[in-house]
C-alpha cells in the first residue's frame, strides 16, 4: 500500500495555505509523523488527504485517485480523527463508536457484527469499562481515546490522526503510540499522525515530515529530519539532538531563539 501526493494545493476562500505540495511515496506498514509549529498547515494537509476540504492536485492510493472520489468513496479508504473533540453530546462511548460503522455505506451490514467490532476497538484501547459511559461525563483524555476508537473501528487503509495524544497522560500517550505502530504493522496500513512531542515522533515513527508554512521543511528518517539546523529554522529554538543510551534520538532544547 502506498500513498502518492503530487501538486497538492489547498486554501480557505482565496487564501492559499498549501501550494503545489509533493510528498514522496508514503508506504504502508509504518508510522509517519507530521510535525511543525502552530499554523504550519498540518490539520489542513490531513483534512485535504481525507477529502474534507477542496484541494487541487493528485492524491493517489495505489491505483485509486482519491481526489476524484465522493465523500463516501473517500471514507472507504481514509479515516480522519479531528483535533477538536465534540462538546456536550448525549451519547455513550459505545453508541458513538457504533455510529462510525452504522452511519456510512456499510450501515446495512449486520448490527451484531458492528457491536463486536466496536467492542473490540474499545478493548484494544483499554477503555472497555467506558463503553456505557456518556461522552459528556468523560475527562478530556478519555474522550480523546473514545474519538480514537471511532477511527480505528473503521479499519481504514489510511489512518489520519490529528494530535490524538494532546490530552493524554504519559502512560496513555505511549500506549496510543504503541497501538498505532502495531496497527500499522499488523494491517500494513498507512498511518499519518500529527504530534507535538518531537522525541515521541522520533521514538515511534519510522518517518518524520516537518511542515512549515504549508511547505515541507524536512522529510526522512528521524535522524535525517530532526537536526539542530531544522529545529532552529522551523521552531526557532536552539536545541541539541543526541542519541540516548538505547540509541533513540532525544531532543534537548536549550533556549528560544
Amino acid at each position: 500500500m502506498a500513498l502518492h501526493v503530487t501538486g497538492l494545493s489547498v486554501g480557505y476562500g482565496r487564501r492559499p495555505i498549501i501550494e503545489g505540495l509533493d510528498i514522496k511515496e508514503i508506504s504502508g506498514g509504518s508510522v509517519t509523523a507530521l510535525i511543525g509549529p502552530n499554523a504550519a498547515g498540518k490539520t489542513t494537509l490531513l483534512r485535504a488527504l481525507a477529502g474534507l476540504v477542496p484541494a487541487k492536485g493528485s492524491i493517489r492510493l495505489d491505483d485509486v485517485e482519491l481526489a476524484s472520489l465522493s465523500v463516501a468513496g473517500h471514507a472507504r479508504h481514509v479515516t480522519y480523527m479531528p483535533q477538536a473533540l465534540p462538546q456536550r453530546v448525549a451519547l455513550t462511548v459505545l453508541e458513538a463508536t457504533l455510529s462510525a460503522l452504522m452511519s456510512g455505506e456499510e450501515g446495512s451490514k449486520s448490527p451484531a457484527q458492528a457491536r463486536l467490532r466496536a467492542l473490540n476497538a474499545l478493548e484494544r484501547l483499554d477503555i472497555s469499562d467506558l463503553a456505557m459511559r456518556g461522552l459528556d461525563e468523560l475527562s478530556g483524555g478519555q474522550r480523546q481515546l473514545a474519538s480514537l476508537a471511532q477511527s480505528i473501528v473503521r479499519e481504514p487503509s489510511v489512518l489520519l490522526l490529528d494530535e490524538p495524544t494532546s490530552a493524554l497522560d504519559i502512560h496513555h500517550q505511549l500506549r496510543v503510540m504503541q497501538l498505532v505502530e502495531e496497527l500499522a504493522r499488523e494491517r500494513g496500513i498507512i498511518v499519518i499522525i500529527v504530534l507535538h512531542d518531537i522525541a515521541q515522533a522520533a521514538r515511534y515513527a519510522q518517518r518524520i515530515i516537518v511542515l512549515e508554512q504549508g511547505a515541507i521543511a524536512a522529510d526522512g528518517s528521524p535522524a535525517q529530519a530532526i537536526t539542530p539546523a531544522t529545529l532552529a529554522r522551523v521552531y526557532k529554538v536552539e536545541a541539541r539532538v543526541e542519541a540516548c543510551s538505547r540509541g533513540f534520538l532525544q531532543v534537548i532544547v536549550d533556549r528560544a531563539l
Binding site: L52, H74, A75, P82, R154
Partner: peptide
Amino acid sequence: WRMTALRLGEDRARSFGI
C-alpha cells in the same frame, strides 16, 4: 444513524462517509 454520527462533528461525520 447519520444524524447520530453528525453529533460527533461535521468532519467526523464526513469522514464516516456521510
